[in-house]
Design a protein around this nucleic acid. Structure first.
Lengths: 206, 206
DNA sequence: TATCTAATTAGATATTTATTAAATTATATG
DNA sequence: CATATAATTTAATAAATATCTAATTAGATA
């Protein structure tokens, strides 16, 4: 997730009326008028806020006749909070150089870091020695694992567990972290890879 | 965490310059001038943004002679993302009544919910049957557990594990959730309860 | 004390944004 | 087609905020 997205996400949540909308929607879907009444604002105001929440993927909308029903995007709300930290941590380490051609050199630097992390944390036969404690390194390992899954394919939880067990006995932690850092998502009991564009990008700032 | 705090937290992160400041600080502390140069803004602008980040507890400051060094509050950054979801979920369920005396009746309602959750999820001898999947109920259980720890006391990880094992074999999940939902925090290997004012409050909205 | 440095405050400006009333659009129904 | 309903768009306004320059403060040092 790049800078603009993270900022838009926080802007969406940086208003009391919008937070109250989300609280109301946590009970279940509501139509625009109902929201307007409960919050004592005009329908136009609801439209305005709904647009912000929609742009940040925080709500869904459904039309029935003239009426539009809003509902929470539970999935996004639960899984996206960590994206900000990912952005900050992944972009750390740029201060080293001073010239403006920093981006290229840092991409190089990150590439080298990724190589060394993969060399040091994986055994010769491809298992994970242990899960890195350091944020940036952990993301490199997770991205590596996610990259070995098939885009667009739906996995049962059992399949994911089997896949992850091939790398580390603590498959539950790996599975949770893959979701927390947006490499994949779960809906009901089905797991699927997120599109690569959604993975937190390196070098997105500036 | 109440509505205003959550809004202030997101406002703090809802600006590209401030996110870039955090990214720079992720490498280690920097003085104000250095930030100003790297971000191509005036020192006054840094002061302005630093104030917002400080109010949201996202950074620390340290003075050495004339110079003020800023640094990340890693702890807060890592552990506070979930507070928004807690606020939304804990306040869900208020739509039922329409009059303005809603607060009292809802406090009552939540009290009854808490009682029933505690009755249903704990066995007669005080163990946890299982960790609730439903968000609100999970928070009730966590709050219950946190309430049994001693305020102000520092716990070793081993002590926390022993305490939690008395309730459920999956002490690791409980420990993680207690931290994620701000009932306690860890610094190095030492665990401590957060002050109760920091626990996400019920009925804080309106 | 005078001077230097780093940061903050004050004041001004431009931009963004939350809100509403009024006009418009979309959909359904008599 | 005429009418009714729910939502959106438009236009206007008020409030908040990001930024700068200039003046001021806090602290260190000569």
């Amino acid at each position: 997730m790049q800078l603009d997205k993270v900022v838009a996400y926080h802007k969406a949540l940086a208003d009391p009326t919008r937070i109250k909308m989300l609280i109301l929607l946590a009970d279940g879907e509501l139509k625009g008028q109902a929201l307007a009444e409960k919050l004592c604002v005009s329908p136009a105001t609801i439209t305005h806020h709904a647009a912000k929440l929609r742009e940040a993927s925080l709500i869904h909308e459904r039309r029935d006749k003239n009426t539009i029903y809003f509902s929470l995007n539970h999935y996004f709300l639960k899984n996206n909070a960590g994206a900000t930290l990912d952005l900050i941590m992944k972009n750390a380490g740029k201060g080293a150089k001073e010239d403006d051609s920093m981006t290229d050199s840092m991409t190089e630097k990150n590439k080298r870091l990724a190589e060394s992390v993969i060399k040091n944390f994986f055994t010769a036969d491809g298992r994970l020695k242990h899960i890195p404690a350091q944020y940036k390194k952990k993301l490199i390992v997770l991205e590596r694992l996610a990259g070995m899954l098939e885009a667009g394919r739906k996995y049962a939880e059992r399949e994911i567990n089997e896949f992850l067990t091939r790398f580390h006995e603590d498959y539950a932690t790996l599975r949770r972290e893959l979701i927390m850092h947006q490499y994949m998502y779960r809906e009901k009991e089905i797991y699927e890879l997120n599109p690569r564009e959604m993975w937190t990008k390196w070098e997105e700032v500036r």
